[in-house]
């Protein structure tokens, strides 16, 4: 097996960084399917930097899969940590593979899901942020009483 993998892959596989979960994550990206072998869950915590840009403050993974799947998970967390969301979104499968000094061609597809997982986690964060805003707006807007009050049932909710 090791013949197939670069030294870097084996190093990341046996000593993965940022393994675990973030309990109050701002975004979670879940990719893969146990039937084909690999499942990756990526958790992100988002904060603003001094320039007011949103950055990935913390990132953790949980992965079911082969050595390549675990190594790519560990690698994406290192590539993404500290980056702005815009920068992080641009990380590709090839970037991950290159940082691992290459992946066997058969593993490029099935086990190189980590960049997809990161995109999903960012999407999840954006979605949650939007729905939070909507709730905030609903709380501010109360035409019936013309008061700033929280409302649980909102008629004009489905504005897509």
């Amino acid at each position: 097996m090791t013949i197939l993998y670069s030294k870097k892959v084996m190093q990341e596989f046996t000593h993965p960084r940022n393994m675990g979960e973030i309990k109050d994550a701002d975004g979670i990206g879940k990719v893969g399917n146990p039937v084909c072998g690999d499942v990756m869950w990526l958790y992100i915590k988002v904060r603003k930097n001094t320039k007011g840009q949103e950055i990935i403050k913390d990132i953790k993974f949980k992965t079911f899969g082969c050595a390549a799947a675990i190594a790519t998970s560990s690698m994406i967390t290192q590539l993404a940590k500290g980056k702005t969301l815009k920068e992080a979104e641009k990380i590709t499968r090839n970037d991950v593979a290159d940082s691992l000094k290459g992946l066997p061609s058969i593993k490029m597809h099935c086990s190189n899901l980590s960049s997809d997982a990161l995109k999903r986690a960012i999407e999840d964060y954006e979605k949650k942020k939007k729905s939070k805003k909507e709730i905030k707006l609903q709380m501010e807007y109360n035409p019936g009483l013309q008061k700033y009050e929280p409302r649980l049932s909102v008629k004009k909710k489905n504005k897509k």
């Binding site: 090791t2 084996m10 596989f13 046996t14 079911f64 082969c66 050595a67 799947a69």
Partner: peptide, 12 residues
């Protein structure tokens, strides 16, 4: 857990 990762680990 995947058999390949167990095998890969044993190989180390």
């Amino acid at each position: 857990i995947e058999g390949e990762s167990i095998g890969g680990y044993l190989e180390t």
